[in-house]
């Protein structure tokens, strides 16, 4: 990052990923919405600047006039983050990233996820490390989905990933941060942005992630699966902003007993 961008980013409290600055710290997925219009409205309400998309086979001969996701979320306006969701081997994940780069005219920022199990959708960390090595060698900028293991997070950073994205809880579970000490440990030791990816259920979960010092939160189901996705997107935007501000402001220490807020002198009793 050049010095100018660095000082500008610090002044605006920008999130810097792979040398680009973003004012929004809420990254959103684009799956599970009712239709593309709802996707567009929720993404706008979230204030997201980075949106993740899946790479899939086209449906030959079907819906040829149907609008495309990238028509409603144009790459000129959003940073598109293609993901490798659904990949269970390093080979498939790398293949998907190469296709994404061709699809998006040489765009190299990707979200790597290699899953190990259909029930938990937990990452296969061995395959994830392997894929990360190949992708970094091929000049991809890798934002990596991983478990909340601090050692693994460190190894992924050493390989050269541009952001570490530990899960809060299983994908789509809405359970919130299950091990905040692990997330804290990852945050405190990382030299690249740490974003909680997966497992957020509601606004307070996102706020907790940010209060722990995470650089951002990535979510999909918590918004798309809410009764009112657009309203939830707005709530998440506020929660991420509030959590970030609270982190920067520095919370008071927890104490066991009370500490009066009003002056103790001059009481009439």
């Amino acid at each position: 990052m050049n010095a100018q961008l660095q000082s500008l980013s610090a002044a605006n409290d920008a999130l810097v990923i792979a040398g680009r600055a973003y004012h929004s710290r809420l990254l959103t997925g684009t799956g599970k919405y009712k239709d593309l219009e709802e996707t567009r409205r929720a993404t706008e309400a979230a204030g997201a600047q980075i949106v993740t998309v899946a790479i899939r086979r086209t449906n030959i001969g079907q819906n040829r006039d149907e609008p495309n996701l990238l028509d409603v979320l144009p790459p000129e306006k959003y940073t598109i983050l293609p993901n490798t969701a659904g990949c269970y081997t390093a080979e498939d994940a790398v293949r998907t990233c190469r296709l994404a780069r061709e699809l998006l005219d040489g765009h190299s920022l990707v979200k790597l996820e290699v899953l190990g199990d259909k029930k938990t959708l937990y990452p296969d960390v061995v395959q994830t490390l392997k894929a990360a090595q190949t992708l970094v060698a091929e000049k991809f900028e890798v934002m990596v989905y991983t478990s909340d293991d601090p050692i693994l997070a460190r190894q992924l950073e050493q390989i050269g990933c541009v952001a570490i994205m530990p899960l809060a809880a299983p994908i789509g579970s809405g359970l919130g941060i299950q091990n905040r000490w692990n997330i804290l440990e990852i945050v405190e030791n990382a030299n690249v942005p740490v974003l909680v990816d997966a497992g957020v259920g509601t606004a307070s979960d996102a706020a907790i992630a940010m209060e722990l010092g995470c650089d951002g939160v990535l979510m999909n189901t918590a918004i798309a699966g809410a009764k009112d996705p657009v309203l939830m997107a707005k709530a998440m935007r506020k929660a991420v902003e509030a959590g970030r501000d609270a982190f920067r402001a520095g919370r008071i220490p927890r104490k066991r007993y009370a500490s009066a807020s009003s002056p103790l002198d001059g009481t009439i009793a």
Binding site: G29, T52, T58
Partner: peptide
């Protein structure tokens, strides 16, 4: 031949 595109996902 594989033809792929971007679609909604998280």
């Amino acid at each position: 031949i594989e033809i792929v595109h971007a679609l909604g996902g998280g």
